[in-house]
Design a protein around this nucleic acid. Structure first.
Length: 488
RNA sequence: GUCCCCUUCGUCUAGAGGCCUAGGACUCCAGGUUUUCAUCCUGGCAACAGGGGUUCGACUCCCCUAGGGGACGCCA
C-alpha cells in the first residue's frame, strides 16, 4: 500500500512557520517512499476561519515549493479537502456513534461547564466533563431536541483502564483513561470538532502516516478510541518535536516572528528556510547542513529525527540564508532580488505614498529604507518626547503591541481604530500617542504615514520593532506586569 | 494540580556498549587573504543534567531525582 501523509492547517491567521515545518516533513516522508502528500484545510471553527487566511497559507506553501498531490485547490479522489464542505460526512459519522452507543447528546451550557472546570481545577483534578448528560433517556433527548434546545454530541470514554498506542519516534505510550475527556465531537452549530473531523478524514482520505506536533500526544487516545469505535485501522503516528522560542516555550508570535510571509518579506530565500527547517530535528547521514529540498527528501528517514524541542535560531538561519544567496549565480541573484521587492506587486502599495513626495527618483530610496529594509537600531534617547513621560512612552508602545495582537484583520483602518481607542484611554491626543510608535516603526520622527507603514510591513515585522523599542527602553519585569494587568 | 513527552557545547546537532582524549555547524575570540568592509581560509573557547544500577566496559540500556516542555476548550 502506498504511503499517504497530510498537513492540515487551520485557516485562522497568518501562515505559520510551524505549518511549513510539518508540511515539509510530511511531504518528505511520503515522497521519499513514492507516496502521496495531501493538503487538507481544517476550517471547522466558523468564528475564526477565513478564506483570506486559507489563500495565504496555500500561497505560502507554494512559495516554499512544498507541493501537494491533493488539496482544495487542485482536488483529488478523496475530496472535498476543505472540512467545511464535509459537514454531512461528519454528522453521519457522529450519528453512527450515537446509534452504536459510543456517543451521546449533551445539553450542558457553556456557563455550567466553565463553572465545573473552575471547581475541578481548584480540587486539583484533571478537568473534564462530569457526565451529567451521559445517561439521559432516548425519550428525554428527543424531547429536548425537538423543543429546540441546543445540544452537542460527546464521545463516550471507558471509565477505567488505559489507552496504549505506538509512536514511531517515541515507542509505546500509555495514558490512563481517567485522563481522557468525553470530548465534544459535534458542536451545537453542527460543525465537527477537530477530533472527530481528523479521524474521519484521515480514514476516508487513506492517510497511512500522521506526522504531527508533540502537542497532540495527549489527544491521541481520543483519536484511538474513535478509530476503534468506527472499526478502522489507526494510521501510524510520529509526534515531532515542537519549535521553540529562545525561552524554550512553544514558538509563538508574541515572542517571535512566526508568519511565513515575514520570512519572505525580510528577504529569506524559500530554499534557505526549508533547509533550516529541515535541520530542526533532522540531520543528514553525512552531517551536511547545506542542502536542497530534493536531497532532504532523498535522505529522509524517521530514525534520523531527534526529539529535543529545537529553539528557532535566527542567527543560524541568517548564516544559512547567506550561504544560499552567495551560492546563486549573478543572473539568479538579480532574478531573486527582483522577485523579492523590486517589482510592481511589491511596490504598488507604496506608490501612492511616495509619488507625491518625490521630485527625483533619487528621493525614493531614503524614504522607503525602513519599509524594504531594517530600520536603524534604537536607543533610549530616541524616545525622549517633549510632552510624554518615559512611562507614557512605554505604555503607548506596550498598548500598540497589544493592539497588534488583538487586531482581527491587519489593515490600516483597523490599526488606526485600535490605536485611537488606546490613546483615548491614556488621555492623549492620537498624535502624541503615536510619536513613540513612529520612532519604533520607522526609526525616525518624520516618515511615511504610520498606519500605511504598519500595514505594509505586516504584523510580524511591526511586532518585532515594537518589542525592540520596548527593549531599548529597558522595561523592567515589574513594569511589564503592571502594563499587562492594565491592558487586560 | 493531574497526565504525557523530552534532556550531549549558549544554539542546531553527530553518537544505536568499546571507534569518545565526545565530532560537525552557528555564535564568539584570535590569525591570514582582501586598499576598507564583507566573503573566504586557518586556529581556539565551549557539552554527555545529577544519582543509582546492568556490564569486563556506558554519552549510549534500566531505575530514581532534577530541570524543561506540552496537554487538560462547543480552538486547532
Amino acid at each position: 500500500m502506498s504511503i499517504r501523509t497530510r498537513v492540515a492547517p487551520s485557516p485562522t491567521g497568518d501562515p505559520h512557520v510551524g505549518t511549513a515545518y510539518m508540511a515539509l516533513f510530511n511531504w518528505a516522508f511520503a515522497k521519499s517512499q513514492g507516496g502521496e502528500f495531501v493538503l487538507r484545510i481544517e476550517d471547522t471553527d466558523q468564528a475564526r476561519s477565513s478564506e483570506a487566511s486559507e489563500t495565504r497559507i496555500l500561497a505560502a506553501l507554494n512559495w516554499l515549493d512544498i507541493r501537494w498531490d491533493e488539496g482544495p485547490d487542485i482536488g483529488g479522489p478523496h475530496g472535498p479537502y476543505r472540512q467545511s464542505e464535509r459537514t454531512d460526512i461528519y454528522r453521519r459519522h457522529a450519528q453512527q456513534l450515537i446509534d452504536q452507543g459510543h456517543a451521546f447528546h449533551c445539553f450542558c451550557t457553556a456557563e455550567r461547564l466553565a463553572a465545573m472546570r473552575v471547581e475541578q481545577r481548584a480540587a486539583g483534578a484533571t478537568a473534564g466533563y462530569d457526565g451529567r448528560c451521559l445517561n439521559l433517556s432516548a425519550a428525554e433527548v428527543s424531547a429536548r431536541r425537538t423543543a429546540g434546545e441546543p445540544a452537542v454530541i460527546r464521545m463516550r470514554v471507558p471509565a477505567s483502564g488505559e489507552c496504549r498506542f505506538h509512536d514511531e519516534l517515541r515507542g509505546d505510550i500509555a495514558i490512563p483513561c481517567s485522563q481522557i475527556d468525553m470530548q465534544v465531537l459535534l458542536k451545537a452549530d453542527g460543525f465537527p470538532t477537530y477530533h472527530l473531523a481528523v479521524v474521519v478524514d484521515d480514514h476516508l482520505m487513506g492517510i497511512t502516516h500522521i506526522l504531527r506536533g508533540e502537542e497532540w500526544i495527549n489527544s491521541t487516545p481520543k483519536h484511538k478510541l474513535l478509530f476503534d469505535y468506527f472499526g478502522w485501522p489507526m494510521p501510524a503516528l510520529a509526534h515531532m518535536p515542537l519549535l521553540r522560542n529562545p525561552d524554550q516555550s512553544k514558538l509563538s508570535k508574541r515572542r517571535n516572528p512566526t508568519s511565513i510571509d515575514y520570512f519572505r518579506d525580510v528577504g529569506y530565500l524559500p530554499e534557505a528556510l526549508t533547509n533550516y527547517l529541515a535541520l530542526m530535528g533532522f540531520s543528514m547521514p553525512d552531517e551536511r547542513e547545506i542542502f536542497p529540498k530534493a536531497e532532504f527528501l532523498q535522505a529522509f528517514s524517521l530514525d534520523r529525527v531527534s526529539l529535543g524541542g529545537p529553539i528557532f535560531d535566527f542567527e543560524k538561519l541568517n548564516w544559512l540564508n547567506g550561504q544560499h544567496i552567495r551560492g546563486l549565480d549573478a543572473d539568479a541573484f538579480m532574478d531573486r532580488l527582483e522577485e523579492w521587492a523590486i517589482n510592481r506587486q511589491r511596490l504598488a502599495p507604496l506608490t501612492p505614498l511616495i509619488q507625491t513626495r518625490t521630485e527625483r527618483f533619487a528621493d525614493i530610496a531614503p524614504q522607503v529604507d525602513y519599509l524594504l529594509g531594517d530600520r536603524r537600531p534604537l536607543s533610549e534617547e530616541d524616545f525622549t518626547h517633549k510632552k510624554l513621560s518615559r512611562d507614557q512612552v512605554v505604555e503607548a508602545l506596550f498598548r500598540t503591541a497589544r493592539a497588534c495582537d488583538a487586531v482581527a484583520e491587519w489593515r490600516r483602518d483597523e490599526l488606526r481604530t485600535l490605536c485611537k481607542a488606546n490613546a483615548e484611554r491614556m488621555g492623549l491626543s492620537l498624535g502624541d500617542f503615536l510619536a513613540p510608535v513612529f520612532i519604533a516603526i520607522s526609526g525616525r520622527a518624520v516618515a511615511l504615514p504610520l498606519f500605511d507603514s504598519m500595514a505594509f510591513l505586516g504584523a510580524d515585522i511591526t511586532r518585532v520593532r515594537l518589542r525592540e523599542a520596548l527593549d531599548a527602553l529597558g522595561v523592567s519585569n515589574k513594569q511589564r506586569k503592571r502594563l499587562e494587568k492594565l491592558t487586560g
